[in-house]
Nucleic acid binder design. Structure first.
Length: 370
DNA sequence: CGTAAAATAT
DNA sequence: GATATTTTAC
């Protein structure tokens, strides 16, 4: 990494490679552009897991990481800890909220700097300097001082952990005006991370569908979960999704009934449509390779119409159980998800797509308020 | 444990 | 205001 400190402002940062991590496409684009005008080399990632792939692949020598603090798939403390464990690359966080506690917490957890969005050019101009700050020898014991709870370890790669369930007494939910950030404070002052919301991406949903295809319509959450074999996915997640799935099935069936009542002429056409064979898309679920990341990002948008693209109604998946409810029994020797690789790509809390302008990313609430 | 319904979040 | 997801209650 040759850093040329030239008098030309624009090339001050030449040679410094920044890994930019932000789930928000617009942020990613804008900040990336800004960085490049200063001469940074920029690699982008939309999720923490993607960032980890880039780091671990070591295809690039990354000098600096600039990451959004509230990534959908991992909380900031865990992010800091994981990255410093695996690379020691200096990390700079950014966030739209000016939360002093979060800022200080992140600094104690090893962040070099915490920038509050919106990001200005001047914020980025001198960041390259952090690439040269030597790593501190012992980072431990900081936690005791700061009183910040240990971030969960990498075992739960998705940032989904049980700590919330360990709380004493399930008191009432917090009022929404207390639930600003992704954390809350316990009565002893311990900062507790909230579980990010799980997002059922097309891929995750496909996996769910395939599990159901194998298990039959009366599959139960537990078995579905087992068959799906997605790290970090919880039974409640599946149960909830199953509930919604059944609802949408019911709705479909009802509308079908109606159309059949109206005219018997179209009857057979309609049922043919509904019962069309489930489309087993080729193996697309592997997010663990670096090379698939770009593909994955595109897939999020381009993929076949399911669910999100269908106004909230789930697609009818397969013929095996639609009408009869009979289970499918040809699952002998079937290991449907074996070859799909471990799907690390659990997406939490926020899609990286701008979906029909209904909601824009929270990161840009500053600019477009509702 | 599973499901339905209520609550919350976005 | 709708919908997706979580939490609660049974």
């Amino acid at each position: 990494m040759a850093v040329s400190v030239e008098s030309n402002t624009n090339t001050v940062c030449a040679g410094v490679t920044v890994l930019l991590v932000d789930s928000d496409s617009t942020c990613l684009t804008i900040i990336s552009k800004m960085l490049r005008t200063f001469g940074y080399q920029v690699i982008t990632a939309k999720r923490a897991t993607d960032a980890f792939c880039v780091i671990q692949a070591r295809e690039y020598k990354i000098d600096l990481i600039l990451a959004e603090a509230s990534l959908p798939d991992m909380d900031k403390y865990e992010l800091l800890e994981t990255i410093s464990d695996m690379s020691g690359i200096p990390i700079i966080l950014m966030s739209a909220d000016y939360d002093r506690k979060a800022v200080v917490g992140c600094l104690f957890k090893g962040a070099m700097l915490y920038i509050v969005k919106p990001i200005a050019m001047d914020d980025l101009k001198n960041l390259w300097q952090f690439a040269f700050v030597p790593e501190p020898e012992n980072v431990s014991t900081v936690d005791e001082i700061s009183g910040i709870e240990d971030a969960p370890s990498m075992e739960s790669a998705t940032g989904v952990d049980e700590r919330r369930n360990l709380r004493k007494g399930k008191g009432k939910r917090k009022r929404s005006d207390e639930m600003q950030d992704d954390k809350e404070e316990d009565n002893d002052g311990t900062v507790i991370q909230k579980k990010p919301k799980l997002i059922w991406t097309d891929d995750l949903h496909d996996r769910f569908l395939q599990a159901i295809k194998v298990l039959g319509i009366k599959a139960h959450p537990k078995t579905i979960l087992e068959l799906m074999n997605v790290p970090g996915l919880k039974k409640v997640n599946v149960a909830s999704h199953l509930q919604k799935y059944r609802l949408s099935l019911k709705r479909q069936q009802e509308t079908i009934q109606k159309t059949m009542d109206i005219g018997s002429t179209i009857e057979h056409v309609a049922s043919n449509h509904v019962l069309s064979e489930f489309d087993p898309r080729e193996v697309l679920l592997n997010f663990s390779d670096t090379q698939t990341m770009a593909v994955a990002q595109q897939q999020d948008v381009v993929n076949c119409p399911t669910w999100e693209n269908l106004n909230g109604d789930m697609p009818i998946p397969c013929t095996d159980f639609n009408q009869t409810g009979d289970e499918v029994t040809n699952n002998e020797g079937l290991e449907p998800f074996q070859q799909m690789g471990n799907s690390e790509g659990l997406l939490l809390e926020e899609t990286d797509i701008f979906n029909d302008g209904d909601y824009t990313s929270t990161l840009f609430d500053d600019f477009w308020d509702w």
